[in-house]
Amino acid sequence: MEISRTTFKQYERLHLSGEIDLHNSSVLRETLLGLLGGGEHVLVDFTQLAYIDSSGIAALVESFNVAKKQSLEFKILGATGSPLQVLELTRLVSVFPMVENEHNL
């Protein structure tokens, strides 16, 4: 898994690539909570993400709840393939604000 950051509009955009599983999901969790702790709106970019398991999804859920409590925006961008299937299987596709592409932001 690789994580990089850019700024896009009002968001801190987190570019995820590779595979997120129990081995590395804690890094995602710490990164997300760190951004939210700094009061940033977060855009999680799934465009280059090949795989995410339930531990990665749990990190997103926890972060989404923190964002809501702090009235910060938290969106997922460009989920397709296996990561989208995981969100559908867990019914979280209707919980997270999902954006198909950056033009819709």
């Binding site: 339930s54 531990s55 749990a58 990190a59 859920v61 299987l89 867990t90 019914r91 209707s94 919980v95």
Partner: peptide
Amino acid sequence: PVVDEQPGGLGLHIIHQV
């Protein structure tokens, strides 16, 4: 049961769904 916006229990839910 998976409760929306709760991070626990997702793995078993996925296994049984699939």
